[in-house]
């Protein structure tokens, strides 16, 4: 609830008339455009974030994150606080993305929440995510309001 209060205060300070949002920036990584559309709409409807960055490949997402992190301290305004990533993607899948991210980018400036957002109900995938880090949030598509609140609580 602190976060919400903070946001409210920030909004008040910035005198923004837009509906209050939980996060400033979040990132969606999914190769399927339809999925991105659905996820974006749900995030918007639930006022989850003010800004949503959409990437259709894990590679381009990594490049984006690398670029903005070079800005250093000042990147706070644009650095995503939550990253949603699909597992099943060509060239680099969600797990590979997380590994790369944790190796090169995490802890440098911010520590965004990592959310695996997948259609997979395959148990092994969930276990694999847990093995990489217990902080990773594993969600099944489609994204719903209830699921979003799980991210908040974490």
């Amino acid at each position: 609830m602190n976060l919400i209060n903070d946001t409210l205060e920030i909004n008040k300070a910035m005198k923004i008339k837009e509906p209050k949002c939980l996060y400033k920036q979040v990132m969606l990584i999914d190769d399927n455009e339809l999925d991105n559309f659905i996820n974006e709409k749900i995030l918007e409807t639930n006022h989850f974030a003010k800004r949503i960055f959409i990437n259709t490949s894990a590679k381009s997402a990594l490049e984006f994150l690398t670029n903005i992190s070079t800005v250093g301290e000042n990147c706070g305004e644009i650095y995503p606080e939550v990253i949603f990533v699909d597992i099943n993607m060509p060239l680099m899948d969600g797990f590979q993305f997380i590994e790369h991210f944790k190796k090169g980018l995490e802890d440098k400036v911010h520590k965004p929440k990592l959310v695996i957002l997948t259609s997979s109900v395959y148990h092994e995938d969930k276990q694999r995510a847990k093995d990489i880090s217990p902080d990773i949030i594993f969600l099944n598509k489609p994204l719903t309001k209830d699921l979003l609140s799980k991210i908040e609580d974490k």
């Binding site: 659905i38 749900i42 395959y122 489609p142």
Partner: peptide, 14 residues
């Protein structure tokens, strides 16, 4: 789990 669930998830979502 992946390829069948994926369109189903989208249908539910939509």
């Amino acid at each position: 789990s992946h390829n069948l669930r994926s369109p189903v998830a989208n249908i539910i979502g939509l």
